[in-house]
């Protein structure tokens, strides 16, 4: 087991200035990624997971979005210090990204072949013919049928699953060290989703890359991730390896997330568990725990002070919740998760 960190994010703070005030989208987030590893960042829409990785790969608009603090260490360099020109050498080359909706991110006026070759031509001094060969090679790797034919087509001529494969090919052609996948399967049908998950898992071995997966689908996470970061309202609320987070979660938000997923291998409950309410307004985040207003186990302290990070016996498993504090004497809430009927 080689445990070499290749990317580390430390205390990242990002906010966006709007007329109403500044939206604190990411509020002090730290995580790291090892070589050949898949981590998942899990949370609801608006929890800041996409903003986090956009900042890491330098896609955040400078105009009204600004990084207020923290650092992103990649191979010893802080990516936030790089000039745009230096950053462009890294983007698409060592770090690449797979977007959620393959149709909006592909250029409708270029053949997909051109689009796959583009990053390779940009980053390497090669002829078009060499780039074409490389593109065919990568399309074979991701088992797209008849690559030569398909490279001449335009995005609208391809199905959703094929477009997502094209996105993956574009992300992989420069053999990146890290691939960021932002909800790579949400726009796809389940049978195609299963194909893409299988493909991405196999690629990790084939081309020695690491994956940062962003999703709200716990089923996809269970299939791909080695470690999981649970994010809520711009903060990491729980972290642990995949089995620990799924089987011994410690944060009520993680319980809620896991319980609201209907499971095919369990009986149907009368009512699905749902987390009441909606995430807080990040222009004025609550003083205490951000989840307190929706948490069925909230105590007085939760509303007044931020919960500290509390570590557990499993390796690197931690959660930010007062319920786990040694001074919390009457601990409420499920000890173990049991189907979808838990909760209130």
């Amino acid at each position: 087991m080689e445990n070499k960190k290749i990317l580390e994010v430390r205390d990242l703070v990002v906010s966006f200035d709007t007329f109403q005030g500044s939206v604190q989208a990411v509020r002090g987030v730290s995580w790291y990624l090892n070589r050949k590893e898949t981590i998942a960042i899990v949370g609801e829409s608006g929890c800041g997971k996409t903003v986090t990785i956009q900042t890491v790969v330098g896609l955040n608009p400078k105009k009204n979005g600004s990084v207020k603090g923290g650092e992103v260490l990649f191979e010893g360099k802080n990516l936030l210090d790089l000039t745009p020109k230096q950053m462009r050498k890294v983007q698409g080359n060592q770090l690449s990204i797979i977007f959620q909706d393959p149709f909006t991110y592909l250029n409708p006026t270029m053949t997909v072949g051109e689009q796959i070759m583009e990053p390779y031509l940009q980053h390497h001094a090669v002829s078009r013919e060499e780039a074409r060969q490389k593109a065919i090679e990568i399309l074979k790797l991701i088992s797209l049928p008849s690559p030569e034919e398909n490279m001449k087509r335009y995005p609208h001529q391809l199905s959703g699953g094929m477009r997502q494969r094209i996105m993956i090919a574009m992300a992989l052609i420069c053999s990146p060290r890290i691939v960021f996948a932002d909800e790579p399967t949400t726009a796809l049908d389940v049978t195609i989703q299963a194909q893409i998950i299988e493909l991405m898992n196999s690629l990790k071995e084939k081309i020695d890359t690491s994956i940062v997966l962003i999703t709200h689908d716990m089923g996809v996470v269970a299939n791909m991730a080695d470690r999981i970061y649970v994010m809520y309202a711009g903060q990491i609320v729980e972290h642990g390896d995949s089995d620990t987070v799924f089987h011994r979660p410690k944060h009520p938000y993680t319980w809620g997330l896991l319980n609201s997923v209907p499971r095919l291998d369990k009986k149907v409950a009368d009512d699905l568990y749902s987390i009441p309410g909606t995430p807080p307004d990040l222009i004025e985040p609550p003083k205490g725990c951000a989840f307190a207003a929706r948490c069925p186990y909230a105590m007085n302290i939760c509303r007044t002070s931020q919960p500290p990070r509390i570590e557990f016996e499993e390796k690197e498993h931690y959660a930010s919740c007062w319920l786990n504090h040694p001074e919390c004497i009457r601990r409420r809430g499920p000890v173990r998760r049991e189907g979808a009927s838990d909760g209130k």
């Binding site: 094929m162 049978t191 299988e198 089923g219 997923v261 291998d265």
Partner: peptide, 27 residues
Amino acid sequence: RALLSAIPIADPAVERERKRILLQGDV
């Protein structure tokens, strides 16, 4: 059956044991 087997189950331990019917190609 293929449709059911394609749905991921939110439990890594179950997923490791599971055999999946992967459909080839698109509709």
